[in-house]
Amino acid sequence: MTDCVVELRDVSKIYKMGEINVKALDNVSLKINKGEFVSIMGPSGSGKSTMMHIIGALDLPSKGETLINGNKLSNLSEDDLATLRGKNIGFVFQEFNLITTLTAFENVRLPILFQEDELKEEYNKRCEDLLKEVGLGDRINHRPTELSGGQQQRVAIARSLANNPEILLADEPTGALDSKSSKEIMNVLKNLNKKGKTVIIITHDKNVAKESKRQIFLKDGKVLTDKKM
């Protein structure tokens, strides 16, 4: 129990599209343990994104229960969910989603602003260290527009680590990158996993999935296969 950081219990997610109900997730149960490197795969429409939103506490299931670190999410208010996301889950998006007006450093610093005692000096040091860790020690004061795609994604990874979460949730992290940058990003993620972070990647790219230690394949909102490599 202590090892399980994410648990889905009989989770279904139903969207209303006009008259018809679409089941994006259909009675899915799974457990992800601390330190795992998981890729969630599947064709478009298989429920990958919905699963990411539910694991990331951005959305609650229509049926079933999500547990993060053993805490049931259905009991939490919207603000509690936001706090939980900020502390426990680092998001990495396909399109990086950095704030273009802020420098690399400020982007990494941003998540801490929404936590308590957000102005502590020691956080600045941590943010700098994180940027060094992803290999951008010399780009701290650059704006996103002055950085390559791969560099931007590394800033985004550093940002996701700002509050030192145990889970890293990456949605097609290499989807907008060339193969060289993709490799770099995957190396960064692998290294983080080695250091003990739980990494969950949503992807449709088999080469990316290959790097992970566990592959979950979704189809029509159901888990088709769940293999440890």
Binding site: D79, A82, T83, R85, F114, Q115, S160, N163
Partner: peptide
């Protein structure tokens, strides 16, 4: 989109 990202990285409603 930015609002979504801010919420994802932990911004509360009041933030």
């Amino acid at each position: 989109k930015e609002i979504g990202v801010l919420k994802a990285i932990g911004a509360k409603r009041k933030d």
